[in-house]
Design a protein around this nucleic acid. Structure first.
Ligand code: ZN
Ligand code: ZN
Ligand code: ZN
Ligand code: ZN
Lengths: 144, 144
DNA sequence: CCTAGTATGTTATTACATAACACTCTATAA
DNA sequence: TTATAGAGTGTTATGTAATAACATACTAGG
């Protein structure tokens, strides 16, 4: 968890980007959360330590972290989750448990090739892919 | 296009659902649109014919149409598009062109099986899948 | 009739995201 | 040293997406 922060620092240094206070703060909060968080929960949380934190600050940090692959946005429900594979740029699928709301990352190299082909068959050149799911995670299946 | 409406009528009759005025209106507007539409554009458009149309009316119609598979919601940018395969319940991928904004539907039976397996390998039982893409469509590739 | 079920109309509010502008900090070139 | 450009932040205000809650209407079955 503190690991993730160090990896982020390193990644920024390598890319010549600044790992500033608000970016660190947002990543810390996300890394500490068990489940993906909504932007406004993140804004409240970030503002707990005295100084008010406003939407643009957090959204800017989120954009930055998403671009670096340190955070993923889950489109289905507009939530954000810290990536545990720190800065991978390969595409991953995000599966969210309907019960505990935790997210599981799954790589999908195979799938992206198939979809690229399927798209190409219709003359569509694929640039970005979003793969997300909903269902039940292992822990919750056992509990039930 | 008028076809789609008839298919919707038939589908509703079979399912014992009512194909009411606001539902028809929303589907007509979407079917007439070349590109996916935002909810509030849809609301304005629906309200053009005299009577004011308010968000809940349109959102309820959209929920209904989405459940029947007559309309798809594109999660990436919160837009809605009429389905040209009228009421298929198989999962499809939606690829949106960055230039002309038109959406292309692609079936993905293969892919869903692979992803289900990949999820299962992590103990995750997949119930719903979202596959979306961005890129360039054929027409725009030719134009460029 | 009455009632349950389904759907709509309306008001108000909540939630998600960005525009626009002023300000700070840091690096580099004149 | 002093511009000046670039990146980042703070702040106000606004735009955009979605739903809660409650009243009303229409229909079908008892
Ligand atoms: Zn990741
Ligand atoms: Zn779970
Ligand atoms: Zn479809
Ligand atoms: Zn195009």
């Amino acid at each position: 968890m503190q690991d993730l922060i160090r990896q982020a620092e390193a990644l920024c240094q390598r890319s010549g980007m600044a790992f500033t206070a608000p970016r660190r703060r947002v990543l810390e909060i996300l890394a500490a959360s068990e489940t993906p968080m909504k932007a406004y929960d993140l804004i409240s949380k970030a503002g707990e330590g005295g100084q008010a934190t406003k939407p643009p600050t957090v959204y800017r940090a989120l954009d930055f972290l998403c671009q670096l692959g340190l955070v993923h946005r889950i489109e289905q429900d507009a939530t954000f989750v810290a990536c545990n594979h720190a800065g991978h740029s390969q595409p991953v699928a995000l599966f969210v448990c309907n019960t505990c709301l935790k997210a599981t990352e799954v790589a999908y190299d195979e799938v992206s090739q198939i979809l690229e082909k399927a798209a190409a068959a219709k003359g569509f050149h694929l640039k970005r892919l979003v793969v997300e799911g909903r269902g039940q995670c292992q822990d919750c299946a056992i509990a039930a």
